[in-house]
Design a protein around this nucleic acid. Structure first.
Length: 340
DNA sequence: AAGCCGGGGGC
DNA sequence: GCCCCAGGCTT
């Protein structure tokens, strides 16, 4: 099919009509641009075309991208994919959709089963919020996934990204979807930076909005194609660690490449959170025990954690915080998943 | 704006 | 061992 990205462009995107890519090291005149503070930025329309065409050939065959996938399936995938890589989500998503194919099915499930099915995807509060969202959909939306970003945003666990992604990918709404992959693609291709930095700034939000293809005839489909394509490019080619510029469809248009692929600045480093010794590690260890099944005595549970470094105070504090979060429950001395 | 919240795989 | 991953929520 023809790319709708250029249907509003009267002039054909002939090579000569577009500012030529600047080969690294070429000090020739680079077109000035209001879009970034560097000497060269690519023509967005050309990037749209290239990246969308690349996507149509190289996109991964993910089940939540199938035409027959329900909005609920899309929403489940988006929540599971919050900070969890695709390869780990795939099997959990399959099980989940088989077991709870509609929002109402999850809404009525015992919370203990929901947390067990979440398995080790991490951040189990997401599972709790997804069930709460399902219950809200039953109560407020006749058991249907809302079809606008604004309404989706009101659901538990649905932030700016997820609301836009579900509205776009499930309902073809022309929302501006910005995830970590897209931020990085924008930073490199258009801003000329190695990495986008830790915080999502208003300038980045503005850039993302400016970059959306404006196509009157089929705005939803084109916006969705661009969002999905840019995301996939960031996931497969324009990766954080070792980008594969050799096979990138917009390597010759990339502002970062044109600038000589400078290394990330101090400001752009992301600095990890640390893991060993944290409450997150201890909470995770407790949840791993509780997921295995039967209620256990509190003292026995806390002593048996495979974390020699964790103090009794930390173990106790973490269990209490899990109970407070609704991820665990205690009756007398017995601790279990909630509702188990 | 910064900190917290899991867990595993890649390098 | 460090870094990253289709973020969200609280302070």
């Amino acid at each position: 099919m023809t790319s709708p990205a250029t249907t509003d462009d009267p002039g054909p995107a002939a090579p000569g009509s577009v500012p030529p890519a600047v080969p690294a090291g070429d000090s020739a005149t680079a077109p000035a641009s209001a879009r970034a503070d560097i000497g060269f930025t690519p023509e967005p329309t050309l990037v749209h075309e290239r990246v969308i065409d690349w996507f149509e050939v190289h996109a991964r065959d993910l089940p939540w991208r199938a035409p027959e996938c329900s909005p609920w399936g899309v929403m489940v995938s988006e929540v599971m994919l919050q900070q969890t890589p695709v390869v780990r989500v795939l099997p959990r998503w399959q099980d989940w959709m088989q077991r709870w194919p509609r929002p109402i099915d999850l809404a009525q499930a015992p919370t203990a089963e929901v947390l067990t099915a979440w398995d080790r995807l991490g951040y189990p509060r997401r599972a709790l919020r997804l069930q709460a969202a399902a219950q809200a959909m039953v109560e407020r939306h006749s058991g249907e996934v809302p079809d606008t970003a604004e309404t989706l945003r009101e659901l538990p666990g649905v932030g700016e990204y997820t609301a836009a992604a579900v509205a776009c990918f499930a309902f073809n709404q022309p929302e501006v979807v910005v995830d970590t992959n897209i931020r990085r693609v924008h930073a490199r291709a258009f801003t000329g930076h190695a990495l986008p930095g830790k915080t999502y700034t208003s300038a980045q939000r503005r850039l993302a909005a400016d970059l959306m293809p404006d196509t009157a005839p089929d705005a939803g489909a084109t916006a969705c194609a661009w969002n999905a394509s840019a995301m996939e490019l960031g996931a497969l080619i324009c990766t954080a660690r070792a980008p594969q510029c050799e096979i990138c469809p917009v390597a010759d248009l990339c502002a970062w490449r044109a600038a000589g692929s400078p290394a990330p600045t101090e400001e752009q480093q992301t600095r990890g959170q640390g893991w060993a010794g944290t409450d997150r590690q201890v909470r995770g260890a407790i949840m791993a025990v509780l997921r295995t099944g039967d209620p256990v005595e509190r003292d026995q549970l806390l002593e048996a954690l495979p974390l020699p470094e964790a103090s009794p105070e930390q173990r106790s504090r973490c269990l209490d915080s899990l109970i407070r979060d609704g991820l665990a429950a205690q009756t007398g001395a017995l601790v279990s998943l909630p509702g188990a």
